[in-house]
Computed example of a mutant assay.
Amino acid sequence: MSTSPVNSSSSSTSWTSPGAGITGGYNGNSETLRIFIVFFAGLAMYNAAELLITIFLNFNRYSGLYFWSLFWAGLGIIPYALGFLLKFMNFTTGNMRWIAIVLLTVGWYPMITGQALVLWSRLHLIVRDERGDRIIQYTKWMIIIDAIIFHIPTTVLTFGSNGDVKTTTFATGYSAMEKIQMVGFFLQEVTLSSIYIVETVKILRTSLQPHTRTTMKQLVAINAVIIGMDLGLLGLECASLYILETLLKGVIYSIKLKLEFAILGKLVKFVGGARPGQGPRQASVGFLTTDRKTNAQEREMNISDFVDLSRVRSDLTHPSRASDSVPSPRKSSRLAGMDSQYDMARFQHIEDISTLQEGSSTNSSRPTSRRRQRTRDMAV
């Protein structure tokens, strides 16, 4: 069965004509456009395949919303780009045209909504407390509602505009709905990216560590780039350059996914050392974690940052009872002074033991009782 007359007349118009490409493929004479179609579709699929390989190589466990949203968003780009390649190049005609329509539609769902879920799945890393819980809940329902009110009507109009019954009516409706859903998904992306930008700026104001500030600045820059890319796509859609907009959409979404995967991975490492209940702002200042679940090796690594363990013969990874006790507000100044003197004497004791052990090879005849007497005198 040949393509409908409506499809043929519509597809023969210039690709710069408003709505060109909505119905049927491209039958114009521009070889440059054909090269662009093949190039951008191939680039989008290549970026998606590279992202999928990177995901499986970097994740230790193939589970969680972040993993699956990345996976499906990246995987959706491949049938989306392939479907438009088959459609615009007229590789599928007649009844075979439905293969291209099904492919681009099936890929469009996870590519768009999956992109939003990638950002949403990491919001808990930068928002906290009751306000953070409300933000997470509101944005979750925003994504669900947008998926229902934008995906379903657009799908119906897509199949109708490429069918044989009232094709012109469906194409007119699709042209309007395409702009509506583009604006809706653009506002969704701007909302999520703006939350990252605002919360990241707050973290930057309290952060002291240079690595943390670098990561936060990169997060702000990437979310600003994402908004800029969405603005470019929205501009092409408002200009009714449908072919160019759909070709660039797959490439841009693949680039955005790769950027988000890179920076959100750094964000996970940034907050990975924070204690339960400790926000990223506290971790960014560089506090020493004292969680009970931290093993002895991690505590030793933290202590070694400011203590020369080679000169210490006692176990400093576990605080002594004297240093572990917290002075009461009612404690007298005399007792506080004694505690300070005791702490000073204890560290001097450690230093003296290290010094005596270094000189034991040359002065081994020194009586043991004399050394003990010296350390007791210094402790007093």
Rank of each mutant, 00 (worst) to 15 (best):
D133R: 14
T362S: 09
A221H: 01
G277R: 07
L43A: 15
V271E: 11
Q278G: 06
M89N: 03
F270G: 01
P79C: 01
S8L: 15
F185H: 05
I226G: 01
Q341S: 10
G74A: 14
I263F: 00
S360V: 11
K269L: 13
S161G: 05
W98E: 08
N295I: 05
Q282R: 09
P153S: 03
I222V: 15
L75N: 02
L119A: 07
K179D: 11
P276M: 07
L86G: 05
L85M: 12
L51H: 09
Y26V: 01
L231N: 01
A176Q: 06
D377Q: 14
R134F: 11
R366H: 07
F287S: 07
T206F: 10
L125M: 14
T32K: 09
L125E: 14
L208T: 14
L75Y: 09
L192I: 09
E178F: 12
S14N: 13
P79T: 07
S360G: 00
T105L: 08
I226C: 09
S310I: 00
D315H: 08
A100V: 08
Q137S: 13
E260H: 13
D315Y: 09
I303R: 10
P327Y: 03
Y62K: 14
F39S: 10
S369T: 13
R128N: 15
R346G: 03
I152V: 15
N7C: 15
S364Y: 12
I144C: 00
L119N: 01
S369A: 14
Q297P: 00
R61P: 00
Q282L: 13
